[in-house]
Write a protein that binds this DNA or RNA. Structure first.
Lengths: 339, 339
DNA sequence: GAAGCGGCTGTTAGCGGTAACATAGCGCGA
DNA sequence: TCGCGCTATGTTACCGCTAACAGCCGCTTC
């Protein structure tokens, strides 16, 4: 092998194969006409040297970067990995590569991550939510690249947006619950000041309750810890405090599952005595003893659509400023009694 | 605001603030002496223009890139997000930034991701496992940067390694199971030809069984689908097929949890009639009706240690070639009867 | 009062590629 | 035979930033 002290450059390959650096560059990028013999000679030289191109130099020279920044709040709840899958699927054969940044639901963190990403001059940015700091907004507007805000469409996007209306999702769930005859309804959610989507769902939910002349019978917010365990504990707390409650709406499926397990443990009749519903449609639920009512958030589809916009593969061939609203489907599962 | 058509450069800031580009560069990187007045004038100009430095150019000029490549098989099982947390925690205040690549347990995919990453000339690479393609090995060896292989230490690393011995973990679990008096032991795992760690655990497990004069009473491999649901279904299948089985060892906690839920559903006495154990110590388990026996994989700690090696923050101040073996703790939970 | 020094700023020359243009052969029709 | 158009390759000038070094100024120091 070669001297491993210095890192290889085009020049090394060019010398090893007896052609100019330019020709090597052309071969390695499959661009321009190169004769078959030269091509093979160059590839052979590159391979045997173990040459890895320097994209930093390439990007600087060509003013083109095949990176797409993806900024999401968290990786630990199953929802974003699935969005990522959708994005990767589509980007796979476009030459574009996703780069992930995580904000932990902190706006300042998002700002920092965004700054860091933009400093690599990506070809596009996908980020969760419509709420950002003023500085983030300014950066996005100035960047001069496609920006897709995902998950949510209740608000005004910088450029494009793909998501569902969480307010409407909350409303729909409330309507289904009321239609099933439940009246003393409680809410159990995460204490995340910056989870705007959960907040919008709750708003929509209460809106629909109000329209039916109802208000939340009880509510509880938790933070930290294992969602499943919290779901158990908080459900117990609510039922102890407000025994009259006949329905609990959870802000996500994980705590909902915890609540469900608790009820089953206690021998509480679900959905007879008490109904339960979550949000998200996580695959996990499939293995539970009973199927929790939920509403899927179209995560895979959101990821796919966002990636299509970034890569210019949208059917219509639009340039940007597109807003795509997906419609989540309500799944009553086994935890809302049938009307 | 400025004309958003052209992207800003140091020159724009330099003109706006009346000093040379070099001075601007110094201010923005906090390097070298700059007078307080100049510094403020420059920062003000940069801020009002909305200037975002171009790291591509910076990296090329300085031959320094503050990126660390992290290559992992999957994001959808809770294990890697936790490793990522450990890595981010440590990298946070080193100026280094993790960049994630996912391989889906495919060696060729790993090779491609690695190539892509190395072409950005990162300051270091962290990747899961000790098994890589020949080409990947060559690239890692040539890269001239710190490489840390994580999760596993049963094998020989390219440079440094941090992890646990999965073979030993399997052995230990088998010993605990045998000590508890179980004799007709079955295994239920994922059908992943490239999950070497799961394979090593099974090998260690069978080794210990053999030492006690036992062999697996039954075994089953699954692939795809919801792990929880599969755990249910496959457990049912095994128990139907081999009713004499008195213990099932699962390759991960998720299918273990599915199995546990199935047994409880069926009113099977756990751990009396049948014992169960998984692997990983996922937080999820905390919410289950009964605590599944498991063995934690030290994920957070692995991430932290790997990041420390990369960033040169290891206590000893070693340069590389370090092998750190962590010892997982066995948690008998409620699903192995006490001897 | 000349030399020396430290703080601040500017100049120059790349980093490793690529775009755009230039050039060297070669076959071919007029 | 000449010149045209084509293909295959080379040359040049950057991309935006930073390392290294140079210069300038005011102030000690002897």
């Amino acid at each position: 092998m070669q001297d491993p002290r210095r890192t290889l450059t085009l020049r090394d390959v060019s010398e090893a194969s007896g052609v100019s650096e330019m020709t090597v560059s052309r071969v390695l990028r499959n661009r321009g006409d190169v004769s078959e013999t030269t091509r093979e000679r160059v590839l052979e030289a590159a391979r045997s040297l173990g040459y890895v191109p320097n994209k930093i130099a390439g990007a600087l020279a060509s003013q083109r970067v095949n990176l797409v920044g993806v900024i999401i709040p968290s990786l630990s709840n199953m929802v974003f990995p699935e969005v990522m899958t959708g994005i990767s699927d589509v980007l796979e054969d476009t030459g574009l590569q996703p780069v992930v940044g995580v904000t932990n639901y902190l706006p300042e963190r998002e700002e920092a991550v965004l700054y860091e990403m933009l400093s690599w001059r990506p070809s596009g940015v996908i980020l969760a939510g419509l709420e950002h700091t003023e500085a983030s907004h300014a950066m996005l507007a100035q960047a001069g690249i496609p920006v897709v805000e995902i998950m949510d469409i209740d608000g005004s996007p910088v450029d494009s947006a793909v998501g569902i209306s969480h307010r409407r999702a909350g409303r729909q769930m409330a309507e289904a619950i009321i239609a099933a005859g439940y009246r003393r309804i409680a809410f159990l959610g995460t204490q995340m000041p910056h989870d705007h989507r959960a907040k919008k769902r709750l708003e929509g939910f209460e809106e629909a309750l109000a329209k039916a002349g109802l208000t939340l019978a009880d509510r509880e917010f938790y933070s930290g810890g294992s969602a499943l365990l919290k779901g158990r504990e908080m459900t117990e707390a609510i039922l102890r405090r407000s025994p009259e409650v006949d329905f609990i709406y959870y802000s996500n499926d994980m705590i909902g599952a915890g609540g469900l397990l608790y009820c089953l443990d206690q021998g509480i009749d679900v959905p007879g005595k008490i109904g339960l519903a979550g949000f998200n449609g996580v695959e996990l639920l499939d293995g539970l003893p009973r199927r929790l009512a939920t509403m899927d958030a179209c995560r895979l589809e959101i990821g796919r659509a966002a990636a299509e916009i970034i890569s210019g593969k949208r059917p219509g061939g639009q340039i940007g400023g597109e807003i795509i609203e997906l419609t989540p489907t309500l799944d009553l599962g086994d935890t809302i009694r049938k009307p």
